[in-house]
Amino acid sequence: MAAADTRAVARAPAAGPMRTAALPGERGWRAATLAPALVVFLGLTLLPMLNLLVLSFHDVAWAERTASWSFVGLANFRALPGDGLFRAGILNTLIFAVVAVGLQMVLGFGLALLTSAVVRGKLVYRTIFLLPILIPGIVIGAIWKLMYSFDFGVINTITGLLGFAPQDWLGQGHLALASVIVVDVWHWTPFCFLLLLAGLESLPQDVYEAAAIDGANGWQRLVHITLPLMIPTLVVTFVFRMILAFKVFDEIYLLTGGGPGTATEVISFSIYRRFFTEDRAGYGSAMSIVTFFGIALLIILITAFLRRRETGR
């Protein structure tokens, strides 16, 4: 039958009250009900972005309690490539996001697989694994800063007992970014775990039953059933985490302040410095605009790439 008939039904004009053409008064009603949401969107999203864009073409100075805006054209944007802090921020943010999110995805998926296979006490495991994400960022900063402390930290105490020399985890250029990544992985793996566990638990069980009848082993079920079915969830989780990782600020602010040198400088922190500490509103806005569009473009490209792999087109 029926495939052709189904399509015919789908294309037929819909019957019933939901599909009738809107009356002129009804159009007005629809517009009126949508208007508040539109106003909120314009007020909270579009206008601040437009303000930031306008600001990025200006320099702002204060005299006699009055701000004077001077138009500088593209000067703020042209200065960006020569800004060492901005360049370091971009590079470190990319390294941070890719490594941290990559590790979180692998660990989160592994933990989700293990937890989904548990028959008894699943709630206990889920609660334990979720704990780090419930701790406020400021507390995480304090905890890890103490743990990493060269002189008083528990990590150096333990490695010292094992016969290793103490390391300056946050103060050496080659270790600092890796140390911050470890904290981020600890903090955000539960987020990946939670989403991926929800995805795993919603997979259709009949496919696994059929595979079991066909004699597929665990590895084959993982590679040929679980992973392909999980790709939409994996993509969403990955994109969510990438967006959050590009915005990392609190961990850097609390643990290293971007140092030593520029070893842990990330783009959010560079913007904060330029915009707020140095009080360069125009230049900080230009950094923000470029970063915003850069991240948006990157996320679109990543999503398109993963979707293409998912659909095979």
């Binding site: 060492g84 802090l85 030593p260 040198g261």
Partner: peptide, 20 residues
């Protein structure tokens, strides 16, 4: 001063850490 301090804070720290 705020702009100049941003430069010197980074520069001195880089010299101390051996980065530059």
């Amino acid at each position: 001063s705020a702009e100049i301090l941003a430069i010197t804070e980074l520069g001195f720290n880089q010299a101390i850490s051996g980065e530059v």
